[in-house]
Amino acid sequence: MEPKDFELITIIAARKAELYKSAKQELLSTLPRYVDRNEAKLRLRRAIASLDNMLFVSDEEKATKTITPGVSVADLKLDESAIVREVARSLVQM
């Protein structure tokens, strides 16, 4: 592993963190008040963190073999349904 590899990891991690930040609000709003919110947040964080990195690489980036920093998760046109499906699956299994 080289410094460039960790820079790539940093970019992907930031994309995951960006999704977590907004997903957390949405998940908490779906839960009844009596459910442990800290546990839910922790499980969501782990579920998103453990997703395959390639889910956070756009088709355009795959075609050009180039990751572009500074692009929002929304602008990447990722496969949202695949990400949501994987997160939901992890949340109920972890």
């Binding site: 930040k21 949405e26 709003s29 779906t30 500074g70 998760v73 939901a88």
Partner: peptide, 18 residues
């Protein structure tokens, strides 16, 4: 419910959170 909630979690196109 989670899938619905997470589906709305993606910020609108054009937003630059980072």
């Amino acid at each position: 419910a989670i899938v619905y909630g997470l589906s709305t979690a993606f910020p609108p196109v054009g937003a630059f959170a980072i």
